[in-house]
Design a protein around this nucleic acid. Structure first.
Lengths: 121, 121
DNA sequence: TCGCTATCTTCAAAGATGTGCAGATGTAGA
DNA sequence: TCTACATCTGCACATCTTTGAAGATAGCGA
């Protein structure tokens, strides 16, 4: 199989994994640093099992890593730069139809400023 | 609906659209400039209707634009920079399991050098 | 003009995959 | 044991993908 076919398949996999609103939001939540499952459940306002499933998928694709402390499971991005890359996608969202572009601008504002990731002290 | 929810939904849509190997390859093919459908069919080695369907989806999301000349339908990226953005995703592919990383490196080589897009003379 | 061919799109149906939910099952601390 | 935290399982539902056949449009030659 030619290398560009392999690469296309792998890239598509990544895109597919990120291609869900809940998961996009989870990654953006984790941009600011590690969080435990319950915190995510509350801040995303989603049922527990659902968050758990999304995390399990992200974990399977090595996009997040788990750290356990007692009964708390903390997750963090294994490649924090991925959050910035995702945000860059907003450039291709703007200018498309059926989009409230002020909402996009606001989100970009929110997500570009919070880059306090994984830099311990 | 909060702006980050809207943005997450829109972003997820983009990711989902790009989240298919055929479509990744199509976008990378179009990076070098516009091509007609038959050329894509041959270079991707895919059945015609399938290419057409993928193009139709990309068109619906304003990622490509069509130009007709006789019986030929030419397509080009409406935002050529999107190809570079997709290639950046390779950074997050490398280092994951079950991936032949030399193939990824080769693909990056291929795709990063071909940036002769939409610059007419 | 008529028929033929090439190019491309659309449609419908079957199969594959992803999602959402509810309930059961771990796991750790009190 | 009881409770809180989190995951896992199985099923119904929805969406995506693939394929083949049919439809639209444009050029070409008799």
């Amino acid at each position: 199989m030619p290398s560009r076919t392999i690469a296309a398949k792998e890239l598509a996999t990544i895109f597919k994994v990120v291609g869900h609103p809940d998961r996009v939001r989870m990654i953006e939540e984790l941009r600011a640093g590690e969080k435990d499952v319950n915190t995510l459940v509350k801040s995303l306002d989603l049922p527990g099992p659902r968050v758990s499933q999304h995390l399990s998928l992200l974990r399977a694709h090595r996009m997040v890593e788990e750290r356990r402390d007692g009964r708390h499971h903390f997750y963090h991005l294994s490649q924090p730069e991925i959050a910035g890359w995702i945000t860059e996608g907003l450039n291709f969202v703007e200018g498309r139809m059926s989009v409230n572009s002020t909402a996009i601008a606001a989100a970009r504002e929110l997500w570009s400023t919070e880059d306090t990731s994984s830099e311990p002290t």
